[in-house]
Measured scan of single mutants.
Amino acid sequence: QIFVKTLTGKTITLEVEPSDTIENVKAKIQDKEGIPPDQQRLIFAGKQLEDGRTLSDYNIQKESTLHLVL
């Protein structure tokens, strides 16, 4: 699982696999929060994550925290 922290300070927990794409993660966030993926920007280690890449591409491991910017 990974954590996604929103600007409001809320933390969302997501069940993911390293092979999941960023697009996939955004879809999971939409399921939980109702935020359309095209409004979501995910930041990890100061980098904006691209939809077509996977979590493992960015070396995002379990218990990692991503930041969600709208």
Score class of each variant (00 low, 15 high):
residue 44 F to K: 03
residue 34 G to S: 05
residue 2 I to P: 01
residue 69 V to A: 09
residue 2 I to H: 01
residue 12 I to M: 06
residue 31 D to M: 14
residue 8 T to R: 08
residue 56 S to V: 08
residue 28 K to A: 07
residue 34 G to M: 05
residue 62 K to F: 11
residue 49 L to G: 01
residue 42 L to Y: 03
residue 59 N to D: 13
residue 30 Q to H: 12
residue 9 G to Y: 04
residue 48 Q to S: 11
residue 12 I to H: 03
residue 27 A to E: 10
residue 51 D to V: 06
residue 49 L to H: 00
residue 69 V to G: 06
residue 67 H to Y: 15
residue 66 L to F: 04
residue 56 S to T: 07
residue 40 Q to E: 02
residue 66 L to R: 01
residue 13 T to R: 09
residue 23 E to Q: 10
residue 2 I to K: 01
residue 19 S to L: 08
residue 18 P to I: 12
residue 69 V to W: 10
residue 14 L to T: 02
residue 13 T to Y: 07
residue 24 N to K: 13
residue 31 D to L: 14
residue 53 R to D: 05
residue 52 G to C: 11
residue 36 P to G: 05
residue 59 N to V: 04
residue 30 Q to P: 02
residue 22 I to L: 05
residue 33 E to I: 11
residue 32 K to C: 11
residue 49 L to D: 00
residue 19 S to K: 08
residue 4 V to H: 01
residue 59 N to G: 14
residue 56 S to Y: 10
residue 30 Q to M: 12
residue 48 Q to T: 13
residue 10 K to T: 08
residue 20 D to C: 08
residue 45 A to M: 15
residue 57 D to G: 04
residue 44 F to V: 03
residue 57 D to P: 00
residue 61 Q to F: 11
residue 41 R to M: 15
residue 17 E to V: 15
residue 34 G to P: 03
residue 15 E to G: 06
residue 58 Y to G: 01
residue 11 T to W: 07
residue 33 E to H: 07
residue 9 G to I: 02
residue 40 Q to R: 02
residue 40 Q to P: 02
residue 44 F to G: 02
residue 3 F to W: 06
residue 52 G to H: 15
residue 33 E to S: 12
residue 26 K to S: 01
residue 57 D to T: 05
residue 1 Q to E: 08
residue 32 K to T: 08
residue 51 D to P: 07
residue 35 I to W: 13
residue 44 F to H: 06
residue 51 D to S: 07
residue 1 Q to P: 10
residue 48 Q to H: 12
residue 28 K to S: 04
residue 13 T to F: 07
residue 52 G to A: 12
residue 69 V to H: 12
residue 40 Q to L: 07
residue 1 Q to F: 15
residue 65 T to V: 15
residue 1 Q to L: 14
residue 27 A to P: 00
residue 37 P to V: 14
residue 33 E to N: 07
residue 12 I to T: 03
residue 61 Q to V: 11
residue 48 Q to V: 13
residue 3 F to H: 09
residue 49 L to C: 05
residue 49 L to N: 00
residue 67 H to P: 01
residue 36 P to F: 06
residue 61 Q to Y: 11
residue 24 N to V: 13
residue 23 E to A: 14
residue 61 Q to L: 12
residue 20 D to I: 05
residue 61 Q to W: 08
residue 1 Q to A: 09
residue 56 S to P: 03
residue 8 T to M: 12
residue 62 K to I: 09
residue 45 A to P: 01
residue 29 I to G: 00
residue 43 I to A: 06
residue 14 L to H: 00
residue 68 L to E: 01
residue 11 T to H: 07
residue 40 Q to C: 09
residue 36 P to K: 07
residue 24 N to R: 15
residue 44 F to N: 02
residue 34 G to Y: 04
residue 63 E to Y: 15
residue 35 I to S: 04
residue 10 K to V: 07
residue 65 T to M: 09
residue 41 R to I: 15
residue 58 Y to C: 05
residue 59 N to L: 07
residue 24 N to P: 00
residue 66 L to A: 02
residue 69 V to K: 08
residue 15 E to L: 12
residue 28 K to L: 09
residue 9 G to W: 04
residue 2 I to D: 01
residue 49 L to R: 00
residue 18 P to W: 13
residue 4 V to Y: 02
residue 47 K to C: 10
residue 44 F to D: 02
residue 54 T to S: 08
residue 2 I to R: 01
residue 24 N to W: 10
residue 18 P to V: 10
residue 60 I to V: 08
residue 8 T to W: 11
residue 29 I to M: 03
residue 20 D to G: 03
residue 2 I to W: 02
residue 56 S to Q: 13
residue 45 A to N: 15
residue 24 N to D: 13
residue 39 Q to K: 09
residue 31 D to H: 10
residue 22 I to F: 03
residue 63 E to F: 15
residue 19 S to G: 10
residue 53 R to C: 15
residue 31 D to Q: 13
residue 58 Y to F: 04
residue 67 H to F: 12
residue 4 V to C: 04
residue 3 F to E: 03
residue 23 E to K: 11
residue 26 K to C: 02
residue 43 I to Y: 13
residue 34 G to A: 05
residue 21 T to Q: 04
residue 36 P to L: 07
residue 47 K to N: 10
residue 13 T to S: 10
residue 58 Y to E: 03
residue 13 T to E: 07
residue 63 E to P: 03
residue 25 V to K: 00
residue 30 Q to F: 15
residue 41 R to S: 15
residue 17 E to Y: 13
residue 14 L to V: 09
residue 41 R to L: 13
residue 41 R to N: 13
residue 21 T to P: 05
residue 11 T to Q: 07
residue 38 D to N: 10
residue 29 I to C: 02
residue 23 E to T: 08
residue 3 F to M: 06
residue 49 L to V: 04
residue 47 K to Y: 10
residue 49 L to M: 06
residue 64 S to H: 08
residue 9 G to R: 02
residue 69 V to L: 11
residue 32 K to R: 10
residue 18 P to F: 15
residue 56 S to D: 12
residue 53 R to T: 06
residue 6 T to R: 06
residue 68 L to C: 04
residue 50 E to C: 11
residue 20 D to M: 10
residue 53 R to F: 15
residue 47 K to P: 01
residue 25 V to I: 11
residue 63 E to V: 04
residue 62 K to Q: 13
residue 40 Q to T: 05
residue 25 V to R: 00
residue 50 E to A: 08
residue 55 L to T: 02
residue 62 K to T: 11
residue 55 L to H: 01
residue 60 I to S: 01
residue 16 V to H: 05
residue 52 G to I: 08
residue 56 S to L: 13
residue 11 T to P: 04
residue 31 D to G: 10
residue 45 A to Y: 09
residue 59 N to C: 09
residue 32 K to G: 04
residue 7 L to N: 15
residue 23 E to V: 07
residue 40 Q to I: 11
residue 8 T to C: 15
residue 51 D to I: 05
residue 44 F to R: 02
residue 54 T to E: 03
residue 63 E to R: 07
residue 70 L to V: 12
residue 38 D to L: 10
residue 67 H to E: 14
residue 48 Q to C: 15
residue 43 I to L: 12
residue 26 K to A: 02
residue 27 A to K: 15
residue 6 T to M: 15
residue 66 L to M: 05
residue 53 R to V: 06
residue 8 T to P: 05
residue 2 I to F: 04
residue 60 I to E: 01
residue 8 T to V: 07
residue 19 S to M: 11
residue 22 I to A: 02
residue 66 L to H: 02
residue 8 T to G: 11
residue 14 L to G: 00
residue 3 F to D: 03
residue 55 L to E: 00
residue 53 R to S: 08
residue 10 K to Q: 09
residue 21 T to N: 04
residue 27 A to T: 10
residue 65 T to G: 03
residue 34 G to K: 06
residue 22 I to Q: 02
residue 31 D to Y: 10
residue 33 E to F: 09
residue 22 I to H: 01
residue 69 V to C: 12
residue 9 G to Q: 04
residue 2 I to L: 09
